[in-house]
Nucleic acid binder design. Structure first.
Lengths: 209, 209
DNA sequence: GTAAAAATCATGGAAAAAGGGGAGTAAGTA
DNA sequence: TACTTACTCCCCTTTTTCCATGATTTTTAC
C-alpha cells in the first residue's frame, strides 16, 4: 500500500524538487501541495494523507504552530518538519508539537525516503545533522531555561522598553524588572542587553514562542 | 543553441527542483551544480556556463560576494540571484555586483524560464515580487542603508562590546564609536541598543554581510 | 576637480543599565 | 514539613548609553 504524501511549503522550487525526488518511488502517492497553512487545513478537510512534509517558514503561520493544529485535529497523520535551519530549538518545538521527524532541505533522496518510510511506519526520524543538534549534552546546550516572567521581560527589553516602562506595563516594581534583567543576563551568559537580545534572537526565543 | 546552465545552491531539494523544472526544456543544457562557493569557482576553471543560478545563502561565502568574484573573472557569464528573501538590500547588492537577474525560490517554471531566456539574451530580469520590492519608495523600505563602518560597529555592539572596547579594537576614538552608534539608532529608528539589535537580526544584517 | 558621503573627533549633561549586595512571600515538591 | 523555585522588592555605586550640537578630514562618485 502506497504512502500518501502531502507537502506544505511556500517555495515552488522545493516542492518541485521533492516531487522530482519522489516521482519514481512506487510506494509513494503524491497528493499535491499547499503553499500556506490555511490551504493546508482546507485540504485536510476532504483529503487525508498519511504523511505531511511541512516547512517551518510559511507565509501565514509558522510550521510549528501548524503542526500542533493538524495533530490536534488529525492525530493519525504523521508530520515531518522541513527546514533549512538546523537549530535545536526549532527541532525540539516541532517534535514537542507532535511531529514524527525532521529533515533538512539539503537532505538526499535516500534520507528523504528513509524519513518517510520510518515515519509512515509509526517510528520517529531525525536527519543526521538534526539528531546531532539534539544529542548535544546539556552543558553544551546553549538554550537556557527561563521562566514565564523572564520571557515576558525579555520580549519587552527586545522591543526597546526601559525597565521603567516594563514595570508600568507589567504592574510591578522597577527593581523587580531589574532583577529579572540581571537574571536574564546571567542565564544567557550575556555581557549586556545587546548581546542578550542577539543570543535570544539566535535561539529564536523572540520570534517563535 | 542551448543555454548552458549551472546552479550554486546548498539545498539538494532546490537543485533537484530546478533540475526538474528545466528537464524538458530543449534549449537548456544542464551542466550540474555546486553546493558552495569554492566548488563553484573550481568548476568554472574548466567549464564555462552561460548562466549561473546562484543562491544568496551559501555555507562558505555569501552569494553576493561570490557574484562579484565570478563576474570579475568571467564577465561573459550571466548570473541570476536566487533566494527565499525578497529584501531590497539583497537584490540591490546582487545587481550592483553584476548579477543580471533575481528570482525568488517560489518562482514558477514560467518565471524561471523567462528569467533565463532574458538574461541569456543579455537583458536584465527581476521576478515580479523582487521588482516590486525595488520600486518601493524609500520611506517604505524597511532595510536602512548602512555604511561599512556602521556595519562593523553594529556587529560589535551585538556581540556585547561597549563603546570603549569597540574603539580600542577599531583603533578609533570612543566618541567616533558613539557617533556611529547614534547614527545606527537613527537609521534603524530604534529606541535603544536592544531594539537596534533585534531589528538588525530580523533584517539578517548580523548573519549575512 | 568638485560635490557628496563617510569617517573622524569633541563637550557636557541626563538617563538608563550593570554590578553587588540583601530579603520576604507564595506555590509546588520531595 | 522542609526545600526549592519563581516572583517580588529595596539600596547604593559605577559604568555605559543616549541626546544635542558642532566640526574637520578622508573617500567616493560624477
Amino acid at each position: 500500500m502506497a504512502t500518501k504524501i502531502f507537502i506544505v511549503d511556500d517555495h515552488y522550487m522545493v516542492i518541485e524538487g521533492i516531487h522530482s525526488l519522489l516521482q519514481n518511488e512506487k510506494n509513494i502517492e503524491w497528493m499535491g501541495h499547499a503553499s500556506n497553512g490555511a490551504s493546508c487545513l482546507a485540504f485536510l478537510i476532504h483529503e487525508k494523507p498519511d504523511v505531511i512534509l511541512m516547512d517551518i517558514n510559511l507565509p501565514d503561520i509558522n510550521g510549528i504552530d501548524l503542526c500542533k493544529t493538524v495533530k490536534l485535529k488529525y492525530p493519525d497523520i504523521y508530520i515531518i518538519g522541513l527546514s533549512t535551519f538546523n537549530q535545536q530549538s526549532f527541532i525540539e518545538k516541532m517534535m514537542e508539537n507532535g511531529a514524527s521527524g525532521y529533515v533538512l532541505k539539503n537532505a538526499t533522496q535516500h534520507e528523504l525516503m528513509e524519513a518517510i518510510n520510518m515515519v509512515a511506519a509509526g517510528k520517529q526520524y531525525l536527519s543526521f545533522d538534526a539528531a546531532l543538534a539534539l544529542r548535544k549534552p546539556e552543558h553544551e546546550n546553549d538554550t537556557p531555561v527561563i521562566t514565564r516572567r523572564e520571557k515576558e521581560v525579555l520580549a519587552h527589553i527586545a522591543d526597546g522598553m526601559t525597565n521603567n516602562e516594563i514595570a508600568q506595563t507589567l504592574f510591578i516594581s522597577v527593581t523587580t524588572v531589574d532583577t529579572h534583567r540581571k537574571n536574564l543576563l546571567a542565564k544567557f551568559n550575556a555581557r549586556n542587553t545587546a548581546s542578550l537580545v542577539k543570543i535570544a534572537m539566535q535561539l529564536n526565543l523572540l520570534a517563535i514562542n
